[in-house]
Design a protein around this nucleic acid. Structure first.
Lengths: 199, 199
DNA sequence: TATTACATACCGACCAGTCGGTATGTATGC
DNA sequence: GCATACATACCGACTGGTCGGTATGTAATA
């Protein structure tokens, strides 16, 4: 029998295995047995910690959102210009991605699920709204301080977010012509220069 | 019994029903019976036209790629500056999207499948490569004619593509603050102005 | 009449979830 | 120290519904 562990630890271990399997096979093709096998646990144990497959997936999404919450708090450096903060967030995101691409590769899976499950759609919407809001605030701030032109902040925020989303495509189809960092840097500068006040 | 039809017509009808169902439920949750029911056909009929579920999905991807091939040929207007051609393609894509968002909403499903199926991954890679290539050629041309700065055309091409991909996010989470057209226009202008030669 | 386009009834592998049970804590009373 | 009682963590054989796929038959068409 496997070594006993407190529920809090075991749950995280299971969530990490689930992430691996869900990314590799997709939610529907992923077998509860696969997840359990990944860490040498039994099915009974899994169902001791999670009620159902869907329940496990929801817990994974919550865990996933936690990974990205540092972004929301990424503005310790309030004194700096918005441009630098945004660039910092972008670099931070790229670093997160390098460390564990799986955290990004689940996203299409979450989208797919959100498309047929209201509760999950609302969870995802909530996260995106808060990320978008963070960028909007930064841009609005930049406009007020004369750093940016008077642009539509909601739209620019979305441009930034979809640019960062481009990383997922990057991970899937791995173009070899250039690096992820180059891509993110260039994209961000393109947007930020584009909305900067001309001198 | 349903009215008989030549195979070529029926196949397309089935593919369209499959698109609807695959988008609504996702590949794995989609039932062959769902697809058949959508057009009042029988399961036997479906398996007369397609060998398997996977075969049907592959045929759908091929059909899907056909929808986007006009983009590849979108350069009838060779005389015009690259900027205008790219803007034209973007508007064309947005129009395609408006007409039938499902053609875009299957994409995550295709990504997910590509992640666990080599053949499909290669099909998708091929399409993306050709789309990227088209943009690269346009940008390179723009650079040669002194329209654009000497940028990395591969990366800019990817920026354009991921911007257009942003439409999928748009379809899923429907932000109400602004329209799809506004979003696409702004994004394209941001990129194109960003790489334009300053005057 | 041969072929194509369909319908219907059926098969069986597969897998999420169940359940009876075991093993390892840990708290309480004596 | 050591029962007793209860809780938590874990095991794995089993099942029942589901659904991709098939076998077989029939009507239309060429």
């Amino acid at each position: 029998m496997t070594e006993r562990r407190p529920s809090s630890e075991r749950r995280i271990e299971i969530l990490e295995a689930a992430l691996t399997i869900f990314v590799k096979k997709g939610y529907s093709e992923a077998r509860m047995d696969d997840i359990v096998q990944e860490i040498g646990l039994s099915k009974g144990a899994l169902y001791h910690h999670f009620q159902s497959k869907r329940d496990l997936f929801i817990a994974l999404i919550e865990h996933w959102m936690d990974q990205f919450s540092p972004i929301e708090r990424g503005g310790l450096m309030r004194a700096k210009p918005s441009r630098e903060i945004i660039l910092h967030i972008a670099k931070f995101t790229a670093k997160l991605f390098k460390r564990n691409p799986n955290w990004f590769l689940v996203e299409p899976e979450i989208w797919a699920f959100a498309n047929r499950d209201k509760e999950i759609k609302e969870m995802a919407s909530h996260l995106y709204a808060s990320v978008l809001n963070e960028f909007e605030v930064l841009i609005k701030r930049g406009i007020e301080y004369g750093e940016f032109r008077d642009v539509n902040e909601a739209m620019i925020a979305m441009s930034i977010m979809t640019s960062l989303h481009g990383m997922i495509w990057f991970a899937l189809f791995k173009p070899s012509d250039f690096s992820l960092e180059e891509y993110v840097d260039l994209n961000m500068e393109l947007i930020l220069d584009g909305i900067a006040v001309q001198d």
